[in-house]
């Protein structure tokens, strides 16, 4: 165990092009906020020979709504969690995302840590990921001379493993405009307020005449990656909304997870809590979307 880092080379490229030429995801690692990487380097879980700081690259710290792109939200690779959480565009347009970030309570982590960095850690316990899953976000990845764009669900490949290849960098997360009339809810169970989730759940739903017209359910900390509960979503879209539907969807969601036991919780408990949280989140989101008082779908 160590207190100090091992020596390494340090680069501060001024452009994404220069940066992607340097980073290889293994011996040369990208540094944004550093919250995760620096700790792992101290613990010798990462021993890169080169650290490539992205902090001097201009034009990556934006949180903006693109009026031309259908009102999508663009979050640059250097935008901090705190910046996103405090953005008026986010709190008004994508409150589910703000809610998920608010559940990360350490202010220093949010001031240092970037939203993109949070995804790039590749942890299934990310609080941001389920919200982005539920919101249908996409991830822009720059490579040498090209750029690709993938759905956030395809970004997570396994614990600590993402779709980012050597000589690639995530430059932006794009969150599409929220479906009209939709409401979301993020719920999380953790040992203490400042802990990582035992289980977290984000849902986004919209209704038309008492039936779900839009449903996305995402679950974190209950599988090797955050997962979408597609079967549960399909059930919601099929059935009339009522408490039993929410319960059935929650049961279906529990079948889409593969939790493990670890220092934070047990596999059994997590599986059980997926049911409770998904049902509760759906019920509360449905309330927010106005289905209970018959105001659903009015804007549609």
């Amino acid at each position: 165990m160590h207190r100090a880092l091992l020596p390494f080379e340090f680069s501060e490229p001024a452009s994404v092009e220069e940066a992607v030429a340097l980073v290889d995801g293994g011996r040369a690692r990208a540094l944004a906020g550093g919250v995760d990487l620096v700790l792992k380097m101290r613990l010798r879980q990462e021993t890169p020979e080169r650290v490539v700081s992205l902090q001097k690259i201009a034009g990556l710290d934006h949180v903006r709504v693109d009026a031309h792109g259908g009102g999508a939200l663009h979050i640059g690779a250097l935008a901090t969690l705190r910046q996103v959480e405090q953005s008026a565009a986010v709190t008004q347009g994508w409150p589910l995302l703000a809610e998920a970030i608010a559940s990360i309570v350490s202010m220093q982590t949010k001031v240092m840590g970037t939203l993109v960095g949070n995804l790039c850690v590749g942890t299934p316990a990310s609080d941001v990921a389920p919200a982005l899953f539920a919101l249908g976000a996409r991830v822009k990845i720059a490579g040498v001379g090209d750029e690709r764009d993938i759905a956030v669900e395809d970004f997570f490949l396994g614990p600590g493993v993402t779709a980012v290849r050597p000589h690639e960098l995530v430059t932006e997360v794009v969150v599409p405009a929220r479906p009209v009339g939709s409401a979301g809810r993020f719920l999380k169970l953790s040992k203490t307020a400042d802990d990582i989730a035992k289980v977290n759940v984000a849902v986004s739903v919209a209704f038309s005449r008492g039936t779900c017209a839009h449903a996305r359910i995402a679950i974190g900390s209950a599988a090797p990656t955050p997962v979408r509960a597609v079967a549960a979503e399909e059930l919601l879209l099929r059935e009339d909304w009522c408490p039993a539907t929410a319960k059935a969807a929650a049961e279906a969601a529990a079948r889409s997870v593969r939790p493990i036991s670890d220092v934070r919780s047990t596999a059994d408990y997590r599986a059980e809590m997926v049911k409770v949280l998904v049902r509760d989140a759906l019920t509360q989101a449905a309330d927010g979307a106005g289905v209970l008082d018959g105001h659903d779908g009015k804007e549609a």
Binding site: F10, G34, V38, L39, Q55, S106, Q108, T109, V111
Partner: peptide
């Protein structure tokens, strides 16, 4: 703690609270 878990090392970087234990000095 050296891990960003306790906040004892908090300093203000351009007025914002950061963990000095997780900040590379060069940055």
């Amino acid at each position: 703690c050296g891990a960003g878990d306790c906040g004892a090392c908090t300093v203000l970087l351009e007025g914002k609270p950061v963990f000095a234990c997780l900040t590379l000095a060069v940055t």
